[in-house]
Simulated assay, not measured.
Amino acid sequence: MIVPADYHADEARAYVKNPRSYAVEIDAPALFALGGAVRGKMSGHSGHTRLPGYVRGRRGSIFAHHGGHVFPDASARGEQRAEHLYTISFAASELWPEAKDRRDCVFVDLWESYLELA
C-alpha cells in the first residue's frame, strides 16, 4: 500500500485502518472451478505484473475463488479492467526441487489471465 508522502502520521494510520476494496462486478463467468488443476502461464510481458516468476509453468489447484477484482496489470497502464481472482495452492515441491519430500503448500492469489488448465 502506498501512502502519499505528504501524509502526517495520524493521516497515514487512518488511511491504513480503512482499506479500499478492489472487488468489482464482472459479467464473464469464471473459467476455473474450486479444486481444478491449473498452471501458471509461462508468458510474461514487460511492465507491471503480479505473476511471480516462481509459479510460471508450475501446477497448482484452485483453493478459492474471490470473484471479480480490478486487474492491476491493466490498471498500471490506466485501463479499467476486471478479472476473476483465485487463490492457488501449490505444493512446495512443485515450486522448489529442494522441497521434494515436504508436504508444505504455498498459496498465491492470481488473476484469471495468469492461469491455464493443467
Rank of each mutant, 00 (worst) to 15 (best):
M1R: 10
M1V: 14
I2S: 10
V3A: 15
P4L: 11
P4G: 12
A5V: 06
A5Y: 09
D6Y: 08
A9C: 05
A9D: 11
A9E: 15
A9N: 07
D10F: 15
E11W: 12
R13M: 05
R13P: 00
R13A: 09
A14M: 11
A14L: 13
Y15I: 04
V16G: 03
V16S: 11
V16Y: 15
K17W: 09
R20C: 05
S21C: 10
S21Y: 11
Y22F: 14
A23T: 08
I26S: 02
I26V: 03
D27T: 11
A28R: 12
P29L: 08
A30Y: 02
L31E: 07
F32L: 12
A33C: 10
G35N: 05
G36H: 04
A37E: 14
V38E: 04
R39V: 13
M42T: 13
M42D: 09
M42V: 08
M42S: 10
G44S: 14
G44D: 07
G44C: 07
S46K: 13
G47K: 10
T49M: 00
R50P: 00
L51N: 05
P52H: 10
G53V: 05
Y54P: 01
G57Q: 08
G60S: 08
A64S: 06
H65K: 06
H66Y: 09
H66P: 01
G67V: 07
G68I: 04
G68F: 07
G68V: 08
P72R: 00
P72V: 00
D73S: 02
A74C: 12
S75R: 09
S75F: 14
R77A: 02
R77E: 13
G78F: 00
G78S: 06
G78Q: 00
E79K: 00
Q80T: 07
R81L: 15
R81K: 15
E83I: 01
L85W: 11
Y86E: 12
Y86D: 04
I88F: 06
I88Y: 03
I88L: 08
S89M: 13
S89A: 15
F90C: 05
A91S: 14
A92V: 03
E94I: 02
E94L: 03
W96D: 15
W96V: 06
P97V: 03
P97G: 05
E98R: 09
E98A: 11
A99W: 14
A99E: 13
A99N: 13
K100T: 07
R102A: 12
D104V: 13
C105I: 13
C105K: 12
C105D: 07
F107L: 08
V108C: 05
V108N: 01
V108F: 01
V108W: 01
L110G: 02
W111E: 01
W111C: 00
E112K: 02
S113Q: 08
Y114V: 01
E116H: 07
A118N: 03
